[in-house]
Amino acid sequence: MLGRVGEQIASPLDTATDQMLADRAADGDLRAFEVLVRRYGPLMRVYATRILGSNDETDDVVQESFITAWQQLGTLADGRAVKSWLMRIVGRRSIDRLRARRLHVNIDDTDAPAPESHAPHVLAETLSQTEALAHVLAALPEEQRRCWTLRELADYSYGEIADELNLPASTVRGLLARARKTLLREMEDWR
């Protein structure tokens, strides 16, 4: 009723700064909000999919995140930070999903490392390195992948990852180190 996707006419808003868009959206401007959704929605979708390990729930998580963002935009003090603010919201929602999912699944199952993946060795011949990396990332144990994603896609510090995931900083450090080594080793194998 209130929102219709605007026709794709070039508008000065399309190239407006994040701050301008965040300010206008905080004032209730749906068009400015739509530009933000278009600008950062794809990155948020990639991010949520990586954290969740599949795209089954990406639609829901990203939609909820934007609805939350719309409601809380007034609390964002600096509009220039809207991108990292959005990433934080979607990251948190994705992690919440994982926790909820885990209530239904045996904890040991989800925390167990994924079976040592030999797929990349085979795939390397047919897929580009890029695709192969996607497979290795997907095959990482859940906690490693989550830490890696927060670090690499959302620029979280070690401390922030620890806070977000409720883990000791030393554990985060260890998980990231393992993820890094696994990725490096797999890449070395593709050569």
């Binding site: 209130l2 929102g3 209730g28 929605g41 639609d59 719309w70 409601q71």
Partner: peptide, 19 residues
């Protein structure tokens, strides 16, 4: 396609920013 964007915009309410 733009369906996911439409779905987001359909589900937000001016209420939240009415002042």
């Amino acid at each position: 396609d733009d369906n996911w964007i439409a779905s987001i915009l359909d589900n937000i309410s001016l209420e939240a920013r009415a002042g």
